[in-house]
Design a binder for these strands. Structure first.
Lengths: 270, 270
DNA sequence: AAGACTGTGGAATGTCGTTCCATATTGGAA
DNA sequence: TTCCAATATGGAACGACATTCCACAGTCTT
């Protein structure tokens, strides 16, 4: 599909036209367009206009829209992960938290990224994006001293939690921005909290009990709390949890009525 | 947008036409279409043909394609979560694993579900699907005896890991099916494993080290391993991990420089 | 029986991704 | 230099799609 770059004679190429169209320039424009106009804003028409060219020219450098979206996603993620490792190379735990926060911020800065990452992850899990993130989070896991047979599991849990939670947070943030211009964050949380309180107490006791906590939570802190929980799991003694034993860490829960649990129970489908 | 159902006189309504079109029938057809023809197979054209009707009729019951997709997703998820709780109501841990496996299976059975769940989660995190899953996984968390101030974090981590990992697994399974008709699972894993081995050793040491493990892993077991890891994190003594201490659970990993690692203390936020 | 509301089928509309092709620009061969 | 093939570009044209619109049928109420 695409031509080979990098011939020796290519050095002069960059000057040949006032503004040479290149895959990089296209991806850059795509990212800008996505940032400015949202998920649905990236169309080949808008792109041709912004680049002052035709559709055919773009298709010469990029196979199709999917590839362009993937490339844009990859570019932003790569930039987010390219932050220099701390000068005194902090503890693995610090490193993991830093990478997680880097992704958290990138997703918050580019709201379209959440959906795109989710799509890339569920459609072609081993494209270029996932290994990048997997590696960035996995390397400190290794440094943590985790035995090798748990690396994969540990890395997977980290990746999925980080991307999932960051994405969800970004969606919330986007709701605050877009859904109602005059509504601030506190008001938004209050509304959401009330919505939870009005859930059916029989069907949603757990979610309902958390309604209050929604009001005063700090997104970033909450996110890091999840990372820490995962880290606790990663560094926990494997034997402690595996098949049978029950947690003795805290006192019994008040009235754990798991007996009465009703399945949510909707209709049967097929 | 939609008419109100449930009037008293509505009982006879169901007979008034040989095959009354209803929101339910449309959603059912949508699910069948998605199962049969994949993500892109759900079009209003195909739907009108299958239901022997016109587009306008469908739009009378459903606002737009997004709502239809959301409804289809919700229906399948609800069905997956509606499995009866075990007769002797197993331990919370068992319950969590059962719910997780139920979602795992549902996603594997409906390959389009992975992408849809990811989209729903990142676009409108508090639609009807997420709370359903959150509740199903969260209730046993509560029964586990976890202190209330960790419920939200524990539930979030569980939800994101389960959906993310199950989705990724389904994508792999779909690759095996679609990408190459004559290729079986072992061959596919072997190819993927080789691809990992050929990654740049400098850029991807962690991922590369896991290449071999890819060959003989069992998807379901791997998935449950992740769930157990999360559970270990949930039931871990919070004080053990939060700011300072380091894991002493296993013997030092070979060459782990964790001796030098020091107190973590999260970074300042914005 | 008549009117009103609910529900239906299909034609029309506009947008989108993608393809196609005529043409321009370039580097090298003659 | 002149010419050619490869590279690259702009834009018209196409088909598929979601959605809208409207004429009309079925059903209920009175």
């Amino acid at each position: 599909m695409c031509q080979d770059e990098g011939m020796a004679t290519r050095t002069r190429r960059s000057q040949r036209r006032t503004e040479a169209l290149s895959r990089e320039r296209i991806i850059e424009a795509a990212v800008e367009l996505l940032d400015a106009t949202g998920e649905g804003g990236l169309t080949f028409r808008a792109l041709t206009e912004r680049l002052a060219t035709g559709a055919g020219a773009i298709y010469w450098h990029v196979a199709n829209k999917g590839e362009l979206l993937a490339a844009a996603t990859d570019a932003v993620v790569a930039a987010a992960l390219a932050v220099e490792p701390a000068q005194p190379p902090g503890s693995p735990r610090e490193e993991i938290r830093a990478v997680a926060l880097g992704l958290f911020d990138a997703i918050e800065e580019h709201p379209w990224l959440a959906t795109q990452l989710a799509i890339q992850l569920s459609r072609s899990p081993w494209g270029s994006v996932t290994p990048r993130i997997f590696e960035s989070l996995g390397r400190p896991v290794r440094a943590l001293g985790v035995p090798e047979d748990r690396w994969f599991t540990a890395g997977s849990v980290l990746v999925h939690y980080v991307l999932g939670a960051a994405g969800q947070n970004a969606a919330n943030a986007a709701s605050v921005r877009d859904l109602a211009p005059g509504v601030d964050r506190a008001e938004f949380l209050d509304t959401a909290s009330k919505a939870w309180e009005e859930l059916d107490p029989d069907d949603y006791p757990f979610t309902r009990a958390l309604a209050g906590r929604l009001r005063d939570h700090d997104d970033r802190e909450q996110f890091l709390g999840g990372v820490d929980l995962v880290l606790a799991g990663i560094t926990a003694d494997p034997g402690r949890v595996s098949p049978k034993s029950l947690p003795a860490a805290f006192g019994q829960a008040p009235g754990s009525d798991s007996s009465a649990t009703q399945a949510v129970n909707g209709r049967a489908s097929t």
